[in-house]
């Protein structure tokens, strides 16, 4: 950790939501174009957020607000510590904690919709977590560095050495960002069999907090994708962009799956692409 990292981490606190909101706006625009629609203005996510915070909604119980706010706080802190240069594995556990808070907020409502959404979110978390941990294992193993800047500065062509982990991690992003086909815990589109699932009964500012957390999250998640391509400036720009585009494409061309399929898919890809990619690095040492 040094001062330049501290500045970057502080900049993340301020610019993170701007960047995240913009990513979300691009996402919605690209999605609309893929569907042959004009789509909302690019800055629509910011309009939405401003509106949400201008609303007043009474919470369902005394814990709902603090739990949702903790979800945001720990999502922000996760990114902050990542860019500060802390041990990534320790920080990723904090990311889990952030997810746990949101799930708990949904459970606390006592509503069947929130509860089923929370159950599904937990299952999805369980589906992607092994892959996230294995990704970090691979990054650490190959670069011998345990923090963001160490890995970014290692110069190792990670995307080429760890293609399985890259594919697997991109896959977990679909789950983590609640994109189709793994958007089963909540709904961004018109399907509302669970009302809003995980975010049911979270209106106004509370939903705003969830949205904000989502923006912060997407920034450092793409930051982690960037690590795979950090060895070359061109790749560093193109790699995450392509991954981002592919995720939107998959979001638009697949139908939501059941939890069994989500769990099987997450675990299968972690086992095949993740563990499979790791084993050589333990059998023959570093190349």
């Amino acid at each position: 950790m040094n001062y330049s990292h501290l500045w970057i981490a502080l900049a993340y606190l301020v610019l993170g939501p701007l960047l995240g909101g913009l990513l979300s706006g691009i996402d919605r625009k690209v999605t609309a174009r893929m569907q042959g629609r004009m789509g909302p203005p690019l800055l629509q996510p910011f309009y939405d957020l401003r509106k949400l915070f201008s609303r007043r909604i009474d919470p369902v119980n005394a814990l709902q607000y603090p739990l949702v706010a903790s979800h945001l706080a720990f999502a922000v802190l996760t990114g902050f510590f990542i860019f500060l240069g802390g041990d990534l594995l320790l920080i990723i556990f904090m990311l889990t904690l952030s997810g746990v808070f949101l799930v708990l907020a949904a459970y606390s409502t006592g509503s069947p919709y929130g509860k089923i959404g929370a159950d599904r979110e937990l299952i999805v978390m369980m589906a992607y977590e092994p892959m996230v941990i294995l990704t970090l294992v691979g990054l650490f193993r190959v670069t011998k560095s345990y923090d963001f800047w160490g890995i970014a500065g290692s110069g190792v062509p990670l995307a080429l050495l760890l293609p399985g982990l890259l594919v697997g991690f991109a896959f977990t992003l679909i789950m983590k960002l609640r994109k189709s086909p793994f958007d089963l815990s909540t709904s961004h589109h018109a399907h509302q069999e669970l009302v809003k699932g995980l975010t049911a009964d979270m209106g106004g500012p509370m939903l705003g907090l969830v949205e904000l957390a989502h923006w912060y999250e997407s920034v450092y998640l793409y930051g982690l994708v960037f690590l795979f391509f950090s060895f070359n400036p061109l790749a560093a720009f193109l790699g995450p962009t392509v991954v981002y585009f592919l995720i939107i494409l998959i979001d638009n061309s697949t139908a939501r799956v059941k939890w069994e399929a989500a769990l099987t898919a997450g675990w299968a890809i972690a086992l095949v692409a993740g563990v499979g990619n790791l084993i050589p690095f333990y059998l023959r040492g570093l190349p």
Binding site: D58, A62, T109, S111, A200
Partner: peptide, 9 residues
């Protein structure tokens, strides 16, 4: 928090 609402059913 001034008041609590009921969950949407």
């Amino acid at each position: 928090t001034k008041a609590l609402s009921t969950a949407y059913m």
